[in-house]
Design a protein around this nucleic acid. Structure first.
Lengths: 213, 213
DNA sequence: AGTCCATTAGTCAAGCTTGACTAATGGATC
DNA sequence: GATCCATTAGTCAAGCTTGACTAATGGACT
């Protein structure tokens, strides 16, 4: 599972109706370029693919009001809403060693009820434990782990990462059970997208080639 | 950077001369399917691509002696040896949040001298610290981190993971400085590939569709 | 002697990712 | 008033990944 579809659906969903560049800006606002493969090509590809598969409805292209080529606006369909929640639940539950998927899930978690998120995260902790069990049982030779030599460090690293992930998840569960954040059905939903014309306070100040001289 | 090229170069290098299926088996022996995208398609693609780019020399296809279609054998070129060490050094040094790259680097680290590996890992710790610094400075609003709401959990998770990675790397440095493992120039090199006809003791017992009935 | 099928070995199309490129508008500068 | 260029918006080709598929050999079973 890649994070990009979840992120794109989340952005379109919060806008109600959005064009590609808006989605692209929101993902930059979320810092997604730092922890996921949210690049223009991937975003536009995901939009087209989701539209083709019926998760998004593509409205005919309209000429831009602010320069640039005409733009296509997208809206979530019912199938898209289902897909969004399916992806979100998977992102919070499954352990696939990919930081981007969980990160996207964290950004969207408040769209689910508090109790469900806690349940999904507990399931995640269980999944990590199961994975850990599987690899430690299958990859230790009869003569003890020393026999593996430096190769054993690979497993050592996986297990260390898995444990760190589980510990962190338990901390998050505690914070959520302690009342942190506003989840679905608990008042004003969190607004996480940029309004038309609003500037991104986290815009990357990184100059590209063209800025240098 | 993806781990697959490094893994494929490592397998070919250890064999001296190898065909695709041999590489595929070695990667399974290393457990690479558990922690990287080492699937048949990716492996054969990487072999072809590396050959096209001059890192591998492809010998003409020869009919298999044990069934199946004819196979192509590959050998490292001088450019391939350089590429191997370049990728290996990058894998050990850079922090890109991808477990597979570091895992591949760990599997290959003994091909470098002990002192160099320690240096590269120290550089890695520095890279993690720099990354941590950058994100914590750039993504905290003026009014304090609480302002971010649940979005702050994403950064919290990155930082936690980065710290866990740095701690683990420091542990590894200590083990290596303490004399663990045999590195380049320290006697018999570690043999990590399967000889012709040798069975993989870690073969996945997972049955695929065809086995079911 | 024919069929089944496990093993050996690799191909392929569809989808995803990447980095570089195109194209239109409007304001700043010379 | 012509040129430059930042911003807005999106395309494209090349490469990578995935899962399902093909193809050849030889042994087991009927």
């Amino acid at each position: 599972m890649s994070a990009i579809r979840l992120l794109v659906l989340a952005a379109v969903r919060q806008h109600g109706r959005a064009h590609g560049y808006q989605v692209r800006n929101d993902l930059e606002y979320w810092g997604a370029h730092e922890w996921s493969n949210a690049k223009p090509g991937s975003i536009y590809h995901a939009l087209k693919q989701l539209a083709k598969q019926g998760a998004l409805l593509a409205h005919e292209t309209a000429p831009s009001t602010a320069g640039g080529p005409p733009r296509t606006e997208y809206e979530l369909t019912d199938a898209g809403r289902e897909e969004y929640f399916r992806l979100l639940r998977t992102a919070l539950t499954s352990y696939d060693q990919q930081m981007d998927v969980l990160s996207a899930g964290l950004g969207c978690m408040v769209d689910l009820p508090r109790a469900e998120v806690v349940g999904l995260l507990r399931e995640r902790v269980r999944a990590i434990a199961a994975w850990r069990n599987e690899v430690t049982e299958n990859y230790v030779p009869e003569d003890g782990p020393e026999q593996l030599g430096h190769i054993g460090e690979i497993m050592n690293y996986w297990v260390h990462s898995a444990d760190a992930g589980a510990t962190w998840t338990e901390g998050l569960i505690a914070r959520i059970e302690g009342g942190a954040y506003a989840f679905a059905g608990e008042g004003e939903p969190f607004v996480g997208v940029l309004a038309e014309g609003q500037e991104n306070p986290y815009a990357t100040g990184i100059p590209d080639e063209g800025d240098r001289h």
